[in-house]
Design a protein around this nucleic acid. Structure first.
Length: 492
RNA sequence: CGGGGUGUAGCGCAGUUGGUAGCGCACUACGUUCGGGACGUAGGAGUCGCGUGUUCGAGUCACGUCAUCCCGACCA
């Protein structure tokens, strides 16, 4: 096992603490006083907004439109698709009453028993049911199809254990729900969306991901196929970062959504759904951060460049003037920049603070350097400092931002690739998997084997990956023949 | 839901055999500072998670309860 991963494993013992503390210190989010819910603070939300905007653009290029559906779902809707209810029943919050009243001692409120709902309402854990109940009214003919809707919303899943960004009871996400006239078209859409997620993760988040298809046990409740993108965190564990489901005609049948096809014959609609959540923020944090704090990819950083002036009182006016010119030039180039000339914080404090916040580039405007026409530039990914001529500094910064974006992706990719192992020996696997990493192993396709691996090692089959050339072999656990290698890892 | 922690000022914590509620950071004012998380002086801030009990007296002891964190089962 690589030495650096050993070191990470050591950190992994209190990785959660490191992660939670880092998030709080970097001012991204905090745990709310309500069980398992999260307050996303302005700086954190700014990152989420950038993600939203980019994803939205990518969706719209494929014809998807945004819409909005209700938060509350009648209980009966959820029971219409058997597997779906099985999967979500255990984690639903239920609305049973619609009114409170003053208590007998008049110092508080109680639920008014007279206001009990005849049918309870479920706070959406996901919206397939209410959306397909609506689609029923929208679809009569093959000419009405496809329907390509996405909604940005919150959902609630009453998780037993929560963790900031990775698993909160309430989380923000987008969920796309499409209806199609043919199986082929729906399957095509399922793959198209997982490709978009992978592209977004790599090009914008600089998080390399492995695409694949889930095993039957890990599949979304009610889906025929679940495609996933799996990212590797710095402690070698996997994080499922996005999913796209081919739902077949399950929801079409459950909600009786039929249309007349070209042959004038009734047919059930074909469905897909796909989503990514604020968990992506967790992926971002856990992929790039170091001990100084966050490292944000320039394409998603709310502040891409921070300018910090250093000088004595009478020099500040001159520095402000110099800074203003650079700020205006950078803004004109579409670069978001913050000039921090607050006089109540010393430069050293500002340096540390913006490093913690992950600002990709820092420009120090020092009176002393300026006499020689120089400024100091520091890049957050490597923490390297360089003195650069102030002439043409804007172009230099633009190139540097591009370079940082490329570099952190490369760094994450190199790390991941050096921790992917092919393994054919179960004893060796059991020993190595403890320390993290992705394992490509032959699997006989049975649930028994899957369960045994999980019980022995806590690792799970993440997916059947697409990106590797597949050959037949022998299952390392059962010794039975195997068609392909699957990706196995411990996961968040 | 099982096992283990932790609840005391905004944050991080100390508080001895039960006897006046403390420290660091942050905050406010003034001054000196300012090239890698400054310093001095003065000041503000706390129903000790909540409830019941034991006691002359409870942050401290007992019982209960709630919240939160970590480890499992569930999950994006």
């Amino acid at each position: 096992m690589a030495k650096e991963l050993k070191d990470l494993t050591k950190r992994s013992e209190d990785y959660s603490k490191w992660y939670n503390e880092l998030v709080v210190k970097a001012d991204l989010a905090e745990q709310a006083d309500v069980r398992g819910c999260m307050v996303i603070k302005p700086y954190g939300y700014a990152i989420w907004e950038k993600m939203q905007r980019q994803l939205d653009d990518m969706f719209k290029e494929t014809g998807v439109q945004n819409a909005y559906f209700p938060l509350l779902i009648p209980k009966s809707f959820l029971s219409k698709e058997a597997e779906h209810v099985e999967g979500f029943a255990k984690e639903c919050a239920v609305v049973t009453h619609y009114r409170l009243k003053t208590n007998e001692t008049h110092d508080g409120v109680v639920v008014d028993p007279a206001a009990k709902l005849e049918e309870e309402l479920i706070i959406r854990p996901t919206s397939e049911t209410i959306i397909w109940n609506t689609y029923k009214n929208w679809i009569n003919s093959y000419r009405d199809l496809p329907i390509l809707c996405n909604q940005w919303c919150n959902v609630m899943r009453w998780e037993m254990r929560t963790r900031l960004f990775l698993r909160t009871s309430e989380f923000l996400w987008q969920e796309g729900h499409t209806a199609h006239a043919t199986r082929e078209e729906a399957e095509e859409r399922t793959k198209q969306m997982i490709n978009i997620y992978a592209k977004f993760a790599e090009e914008y988040m600089a998080v390399p991901v492995i695409q694949g298809v889930k095993s039957e046990t890990e599949r979304f409740a009610g889906a025929l196929d679940t495609y996933t993108i799996e990212a590797m965190m710095q402690d070698g564990k996997a994080l499922q970062s996005g999913t796209s489901h081919f739902l077949g005609q399950n929801f079409g049948k459950a909600f009786d959504v039929q249309f007349l096809n070209k042959e004038n014959k009734p047919e059930y609609a074909w469905a897909t759904s796909w989503g990514v959540s604020t968990r992506l923020m967790g992926a971002l944090i856990m992929t790039h951060s170091d001990d100084n704090g966050l490292v944000l990819p320039p394409k998603l950083a709310p502040i891409q460049v921070v300018i910090i002036p250093i000088g004595k009182g009478d020099q500040m006016a001159m520095l402000d003037e110099k800074a203003e010119a650079i700020v205006n030039n950078l803004k004109a180039m579409g670069i978001s920049v913050k000039y921090d000339n607050a006089d109540n914080k010393r430069p050293g404090f500002k340096f540390a603070d913006y490093e913690l916040k992950g600002v990709p580039v820092r420009l120090v405007l020092g009176a002393r350097d300026l006499e020689q026409g120089l400024v100091e530039i520091m890049r957050r990914d490597t923490l390297e400092k360089e003195s650069v001529s102030i002439d043409g500094i804007e172009e230099y910064i633009k190139n540097l931002l591009d370079d940082i974006q490329q570099n952190i992706l490369k760094k994450a990719k190199d790390f991941r690739d050096s921790h992917i192992y092919e393994c054919d020996n179960y004893e060796e696997f059991k020993e190595k998997v403890k320390d993290g990493g992705f394992f490509l192993c032959h699997w006989d396709g049975t649930e028994e084997t899957e369960a045994k691996i999980k019980e022995d090692t806590q690792a799970t089959i993440r997916c059947v990956p697409f990106m590797f050339e597949q050959t037949e072999g022998v299952d390392m656990v059962s010794g039975k023949p195997s068609k392909c290698r699957v990706l196995i890892a411990r996961a968040y």
